[in-house]
Every structure is written in structure tokens, then in C-alpha cells.
Computed example of a mutant assay.
Amino acid sequence: MTTDTAEPAVPEQAVAAGRLARGLEPLHAQIYFAPEGDPRYTAAGLDEGRMTYVAPRAAPMGAVGPSVVTAAFYNFAPSLVARSLPRAWTLASPADLVAARFEVADASLRRLLGDAVDSPEMAEAATLARTAAAAVSPDGRPLAAGHLDVEWPTAPHVVFWHALSILREHRGDGHIALLVAAGLSGLEALLTATATGTGFTPEFARASRGWTVQEWNDGVARLGERGLLEHAAPSDETVVPVLTEAGAALRKRIEDHTHRLGAAPWGALGADGATRLGEIGGAFARTALANGAFPSDGVFAARPAR
């Protein structure tokens, strides 16, 4: 007698929820590239540089220390986070930075979407997305939990953005749990994700997350020894990671189960609600991308939405 040890298939509903989440993600993620961001955050008191990313994103969790943020963000170098925290909390309160983030979201979405921010479709999308966000469980989801505790804004397009932020961090928290289970450190997770070719370019991924060339290339070598990346010759430049067959299978398995762990809130919409949100939100995402939501060169190996 033989025993089937193959993993059970991820339910199609979970895969569909994952596709919806990924399709809407640009509407959340654009804030990290918005030109409105740095001026507003420095006006709040923050130093220029990566502090204007680290502190505002962490702010919904309160004045937490660098170890907590490194754990929650996962693929950032601890040294980069430590350069921003706890100093940021002496310059601006978490509450002030949460308010600043909403202001940046308001301004950036108005620039990217124009009159659509005041449309009936935006109000409908905000209601649907908030329904899904309200179904998020904080269990084991520290970054999503922090966002759940933030008081809701009132403008529909900012409600929509905040709901997508909760849902994105919920999905991300589950993704990190799977990376830990797979034995991938934060750097190793970044390396394997970059090697899929659907996210950041290697140089931008390394530099923006604060890893040195030596740390990056040492990580490539370790994963080469594990059979997850192709072996690369020693280099003084950022090595381009290339997945092996085993590495590609691992990334697919992680992505599939990220869909599974992130699916529950989207189920609150029902099939019709999810389809409708995908239609409206997808149109908004395409408009935002067409209007320059992300840099055109040197950052992405491919557009972040699909």
C-alpha cells in the first residue's frame, strides 16, 4: 500500500482572494513612493532618509523598539531599523505620524486618481474594503493588529486606503509566518523573492532594505549551499540571485499558502462583493499605475501589480 504525501491543494477561493489582494496592493503600496511623503514626514519632525519609511509604517503599533519593527517588517537589515528607532519617537509621536500617513494617502490618491476619489464607485469600494478589513483577526498578526487599532478616517478614498493597508499587513504577517516555517531569514526571504523576478531589482532591494553587498552575497552563497539559489562566483557587486528548481518550488509553495492564510477576511464579502471590489479597485489600480504610482526605471524588475 502506498501513502500519498503530497500537500493538499490550496482552495481555489483562497487563490482568488490572493489574486484580489495582489491586484489591489498598488493602491496601498504607492504611498511608499509618493512624492508627498518625505516633505510631510520631515515636517512632522522626522529626519530625512529611511526614517520616513520605517517610522510612519511602524507608527500604528505605537512607540515600539527596533527589534519589534525588524521582526514585523522582516526583510529589513536590523542596522537600518536601528538607525531610525527609537530616535524617531523623540522627534514625532506615533499618533502624529499616523495622521501624517493619512494626509499623504489623501494627497497621493487625489493626484493619481483625480476626480475618481469623490466618485460613487470610490464610496462603494471603501465600503466593501472596510467590510473585509473588519473581518481581520489580530491573532498572530502584530502589524495588522496595530492598524486595526487606528481610528478610521472619514474620507472614502482614505477609508479605502486604510482598509487595504489592514488587509495588506494581515496578508504580510501570515507570509512572514510561512517564511519562518521555511527556515528563511529576513535577508533570505528578500533574496528568494527578488529572484522570482516580479518585484524589486536586486540592487534596489539590497540598498533599500539596508543590507551591505557582503551580507547580500553571503546570503546568496548560503542559499546556494541549501540548493535554493544557483551558486554564484564571489563578487564585489550585488549578485543577481537565481532560483533553482527547488527554490522556485519553495517560493510557489509559500505564495500558495500565503493566499490560504490571507483569505478569510476577503470571504466576508461573498463572491459577488469580492468580484465587484476587484472590478472597481482594479480600475483604480490601473489608473494609478498609468499615472505614475511607481518609479519607471531602476526599482522594479516588473510592475508590482498583475
Results as ranks from 00 to 15, higher is better:
Pro234Tyr: 10
Ala58Lys: 12
Ala99His: 03
Gly23Thr: 01
Glu237Asn: 13
Thr3Pro: 02
Ala195Leu: 02
Arg57Gly: 03
Glu121Met: 11
Ala16Met: 00
Glu124Gly: 03
Leu184Arg: 07
Ala105Gln: 09
Ala9Pro: 02
Phe200Ile: 01
Ala92Leu: 08
Asp173Phe: 04
Glu230Trp: 02
Ala205Ile: 10
Glu237Ala: 15
Ser185Val: 09
Gly45Tyr: 02
Leu24Val: 00
Ala268Asp: 07
Gly298Cys: 11
Tyr32Glu: 12
Arg22Val: 02
Leu148Gly: 06
Phe284Leu: 15
Phe33His: 09
Gly199Met: 10
Asp4Ala: 07
Ala189Lys: 14
Trp211Val: 01
Gly65Tyr: 10
Phe76Leu: 12
Gly292Leu: 12
Trp152Gln: 14
Ala105His: 02
Gly45Thr: 05
Gly174Cys: 10
Tyr53Val: 14
Tyr41Glu: 10
Ala305Thr: 08
Tyr53Ser: 06
Leu27Glu: 01
His147Ala: 10
Arg130His: 05
Ala189Cys: 11
Leu85Gln: 05
Leu85Ser: 02
Ala285Gly: 04
Ala221Asn: 06
His257Asp: 14
Pro8Trp: 01
Pro202Thr: 04
Arg83Pro: 01
Glu215Met: 05
Gly227Thr: 09
Leu112Val: 04
Ala133Ile: 06
Phe204Trp: 09
Thr2Ala: 15
Asp38Ser: 09
Gly197Phe: 06
Ala92Ser: 14
Leu190Ile: 07
Glu121Tyr: 02
Leu229Gly: 00
His147Phe: 13
Gly282Phe: 04
Met51Ser: 07
Thr212Cys: 11
Ala88Leu: 08
Arg141Trp: 08
Asp256Met: 08
Glu237His: 15
Gly23Cys: 03
Gly278Trp: 00
Glu25Phe: 05
Asp118Gly: 14
Ser137Tyr: 05
Ala155Gln: 15
Ala58Met: 12
Gly172Thr: 11
Asp297Arg: 15
Pro86Lys: 14
Leu277Asp: 01
Ala221Pro: 04
Val98Arg: 01
Val220Phe: 00
Ala9Gln: 06
Val180Cys: 07
Ala205Phe: 00
Val15Lys: 00
Arg168Met: 04
Glu36Thr: 03
Val136Leu: 03
Pro39Gln: 08
Leu24Cys: 00
Ala205Asp: 04
His231Gly: 05
Ala126Leu: 06
Val159Gln: 13
